[in-house]
Structure formats: structure tokens, C-alpha cells
């Protein structure tokens, strides 16, 4: 591995830009993502920066059980993110539909049907700690040696 690649890996693991999208949640998980920004958890001390702009993001946090309104939008949003990229499902909703996965509801979980999901953080809602450690463990592994892998 070249020194340049090593530097890139280090920088990528310390500078993770995050966008989040709510595809139909109860807002519980949104609040927990918000709590990651608070001084108690302070997401920026780990080098994670919440941009909420897909064009600049590395990680997409997907929240919610996928309502019909997202049919054409989520895929497009995912394609706007430049590679290397990864999507993380936050909460039970994108994994199983949580409490909304009942007959005759409009939700269409899991979100993995619609865009590739790299990691799942179960919980209703998950603790900010769990969200943070998921981002911190997924991002460096996926982004490491990106140029080598895609050659």
C-alpha cells in the first residue's frame, strides 16, 4: 500500500460526512440522531460531520419504514451521493417496519429492497451510542483502500 493510500485511509476514517433521510418514521429515531449532535454525545469529536447534503455525504442514515411518497425519491437521493458511500439503517423501521408492519398499512419495509444497506442499527429507537459506534465501525472498513478496490 502506498503512503498516499495510507494517508487517504486515515483522513477518510477521521472525516465522515453524514446525511440523513427520514422515509416515514415516528420521529423517535430522528430525535436520537439529533441527540448525537448534542454535547453529551458530540458526534463531531469523532470526525463525523452532519451535512445533510447528499452531494457531499459519505454515509446516508436511513430512518423510517419507507412510505409510498419515497418511491422515486430515495433511489435518486442515493445515486446523488458520490462513491465511496454507504447507507446505514437506523432503528427497527427500515429493518422490519417495526410497529407499522401490519396488514393493510402503506409502509414497504425493509429499505434494503430499495437501496443497498451496509449496516443496521436495531432498536426503537437505538441509543445515540449505538448509532455512533455503527458509523464509526462501518465507515473506515468500507472506505479503506477504495482506490485499490475499484481498480
Amino acid at each position: 500500500m502506498t503512503i498516499l493510500q495510507k494517508v487517504k485511509n486515515f483522513v477518510r476514517s477521521r472525516s465522515i460526512h453524514v446525511a440523513y433521510v427520514d422515509v416515514g418514521s415516528c420521529n423517535g429515531c430522528d430525535i436520537e440522531v439529533l441527540a448525537c449532535l448534542s454535547p453529551r454525545y458530540d458526534i463531531e469529536q469523532y470526525g463525523i460531520f452532519v451535512h445533510n447534503n447528499p452531494r457531499e455525504a459519505d454515509i446516508l442514515l436511513v430512518i423510517g419504514a419507507y412510505t409510498p411518497g419515497w418511491e422515486e425519491k430515495l433511489r435518486g437521493l442515493w445515486e446523488k451521493i458520490p462513491p465511496p458511500k454507504a447507507a446505514i439503517a437506523i432503528g427497527n423501521c427500515p429493518i422490519s417496519g417495526c410497529l407499522f408492519a401490519r396488514p393493510h398499512t402503506l409502509v414497504d419495509p425493509p429499505v434494503a429492497k430499495h437501496i443497498p444497506i451496509a449496516a443496521q442499527v436495531p432498536g426503537c429507537p437505538p441509543r445515540p451510542t449505538e448509532i455512533l459506534s455503527a458509523i464509526l465501525s462501518v465507515a473506515p472498513t468500507i472506505f479503506a483502500d477504495y482506490e485499490v478496490k475499484t481498480k
Binding site: N92, I95, S96, C98, L99, Q120, P122, G123, C124
Partner: peptide, 17 residues
């Protein structure tokens, strides 16, 4: 039912704790 008798199983991703 398991060899040790009945046992509850929690399914992570569905359970809301």
C-alpha cells in the same frame, strides 16, 4: 421448543425493548 424445553426467542430488529 428446544432440546432443553420451551424458550422465548427475541428477534432483534423487531423488538422495541
Amino acid at each position: 421448543r428446544t432440546p432443553e424445553g420451551w424458550q422465548p426467542r427475541i428477534h432483534v430488529g423487531h423488538c422495541i425493548r
